[in-house]
Every structure is written in C-alpha cells, then in structure tokens.
C-alpha cells in the first residue's frame, strides 16, 4: 500500500520536473518547481529523513521559489522574452540520448547497491553519548563532521559577498529594494500576524534539534522567511548592507564556530573537537549563533544585491 503512495509521489515528481523543462510559460515553470520542492519534502519524509524533509520544503520549495519568482519579474521588465526549447530535432536529440544514458547508468548503480548496505549508523550511535545529543543527524552536522558545516557557513558568506559585489557602484553599502509598488492588504495582515509564530517555531526547532528532527538550518530558514515577509509588506525597510551590526551578525556565527574550533586545539584533542564535559552547551551555543547568521545570510541572498544608494 505504502509502495503505491511512493509510486504516485515519484510519478508526480518526474511529471513536474518534465513540465519545468518543456513548458513555454516561465512563471508556470517556477510554480511547478515550487510544487516539486514541496513534493520532494514529502518524499524525504517517506525516506524517513525528517531533518532533510524540513530543509528541502523550506529551502527547495520556499526560498528558492521566491528567489526565482523575483528574478522572473526582473527579467520580464528588463530583458527580451527568453526563447523556448529548440524545436529542431538535431539540437535536442543528442543531448536527450546522452542524458538518458546518464539516467540509465545511475539507475543501474542504484539497483546494484551492495548488500548488506554499508552504514555508519553504528559509529554514529556509539559516540552519541559523548556529545550529549539525541539527534544523530545534528551530531554529524555539529560534532563528527563539524568541518563540513563550518565550510558550508563560509560558502554562504562568500556567496553573499558575491551577490553584493554585483551591485552598481553607487548602491554599494545601500539596501535592497524589496517593497513592491503596490502592497496588498492581506500581505500586511499576514506580515503582522505570522512573525511571532514563526519566531516561536524557529526557537523551538533550534532547541529540539539537539534531540529530535530540526536544527539550525531549518530554524534559520524560517527566521529568514519571517524577515522577508516583514520587508515585503513594507513594515520595515531592508537593512543597509553597510551597517556594522548587520555584518557582525552575519559573521558572528561562523566566527564563534572557528573560535570554538581553535579552543578544541587547546583543551581537547584538536581542531573542532569539544571537551566532553561541556560538549552539549558548546554545541547549543554554536547552534544559536549560527541560526541568526544563517537567517540573515539567507534573507539577504534572496533580497539580492543592494540597489539603493546608502544613507549616511
């Protein structure tokens, strides 16, 4: 029975992905992609990866969709109408066949997975006690493979630097224009009612992330969504990107992470290792600082390069 549900889900995912590629309607493709992200979230829940499901639904379906819709609106105003897929068979046949081959090869790999399946679950559970955490995924992210998470934070900051550096010279250090010309009333209402709940859910996610599905990424994405909602409704202006407080907040999380990492060299076994007695408070502290940094970075990545001159 559950397999029938999974098959329907998979069919829906593939149909939506194909629609994204072949449709002529640019906006429709983006909406299909957002639906795809949400369906994929359900798929991840079916794979029993609730942490991934929360991240995929929030980032894949939500933030990426918003980013794409804003880009589409910009392109419609500034660029010639983009062309559709080539109709000339010579131009799509060879790529289609090659991509089909890639899919077949991957499918063969999927069907030939070794059994019994290799798994690091034993090691992950065996050391869980030492970290004081209950959620093995959080333990991997912030303890066993903390270096990955640290580098990923730095990638986020670098991407933001890249986005900002695409602003016009006059707008460097200014703010992004998020507020639309006409703000619908329901949006303002939503932007007044939603944020308290959103913040509460985010705090809850960080806190339970130590033991249950949830964590910094999911919470950060929810906070970013709330901030964007408030700015879109015009209740608050987007922050000046030259603001020192803002930049401190963005860099604070990774900076604290690096600091704790070097602390590990002095008091524990090496870079990014935690003294066992205070592992849990350290991890929760890093998570709290990272959540704020992630929220700020994600929101500003969606907001895009600053396009208004800075106010002194």
């Amino acid at each position: 029975m559950s397999l029938v549900f999974d098959m329907a889900l998979v069919a829906g995912l593939i149909a939506l992905a194909l629609h994204v590629v072949v449709t002529r309607d640019g906006r429709g493709a983006i909406l299909a992609f957002m639906a795809f992200g949400l369906l994929l979230g359900i798929g991840w829940a079916r794979l029993a990866s609730v942490d991934v499901a929360l991240t995929e639904a929030a980032i894949g379906g939500g933030l990426t969709g918003m980013l794409l819709l804003r880009a589409q609106a910009h392109l419609v105003r500034h660029a010639a109408h983009p062309a559709a897929l080539p109709t000339d068979r010579r131009r799509w046949l060879v790529p289609a066949l090659s991509c089909g081959l890639v899919t077949l090869a991957l499918a063969a790999v999927v069907l030939a997975f070794p059994r019994p399946a290799p798994s690091l679950a034993h090691q992950a559970v065996a050391s869980l006690e030492a970290t004081g955490l209950g959620n093995p995924v959080t333990a991997v992210l912030l303890a066993y493979r903390a270096i990955d998470t640290l580098l990923e934070k730095i990638v986020l900051i670098l991407a933001l630097v890249g986005v900002w550096s695409l602003s016009r010279d006059a707008a460097w250090g200014g703010a992004s224009q998020l507020r639309p010309a006409i703000i619908p009333e329901p949006l303002v209402f939503l932007a007044r009612v939603m944020p308290p709940f959103g913040v509460l859910i985010a705090v809850y996610q960080v806190w339970v992330g130590a033991d249950l599905p949830g964590g910094t990424f999911q919470a950060g994405t929810i906070l970013a969504a709330m901030a964007l909602l408030v700015m879109l409704a015009g209740l608050r202006l987007a922050p000046q990107t030259q603001s020192r407080a803002l930049r401190l907040m963005l860099a604070g999380g990774p900076a604290l992470f690096v600091l704790v990492g070097f602390l590990g060299v002095a008091v524990a076994q090496g870079f990014l290792s935690y003294p066992e007695a205070i592992a849990k408070p350290l991890i929760v502290g890093i998570e709290a600082a990272l959540t704020l940094s992630i929220a700020g970075t994600l929101a500003l990545l969606v907001a895009g390069p600053p396009d208004r001159a800075p106010e002194p």
Binding site: L47, A48, S49, D51, V52, T55, E56, I59, G60, L63, T64, L67, F113, A117, P118, S119, L120, A121, H122, A124, V125, P136, V137, A139, V140, L141, Y144, R145, D148, T149, E152, V155, L156, L158, A159, L160, V163, G215, F217, I294, L298, L301, V302, G304
Partner: peptide, 29 residues
C-alpha cells in the same frame, strides 16, 4: 538502506544532504 541500530537511516548521508541543499541554494542565489 543504511538503517541500523534503531535509526531509520544512516545519519551521515542525511547530514551531508542538508549541507548540500544549503550550498545549492547559495549557488543558485
């Protein structure tokens, strides 16, 4: 497939996918 020790899946690939989703978002932006 790596489900073991009472976990419903191998946590290491799951954590890597979460990291991957966030990095893909940054690249998209």
């Amino acid at each position: 497939r790596g489900a073991a020790m009472g976990l419903s899946g191998d946590p290491v690939p799951q954590a890597m996918v979460i990291t991957g989703i966030v990095v893909a978002f940054a690249a998209t932006a």
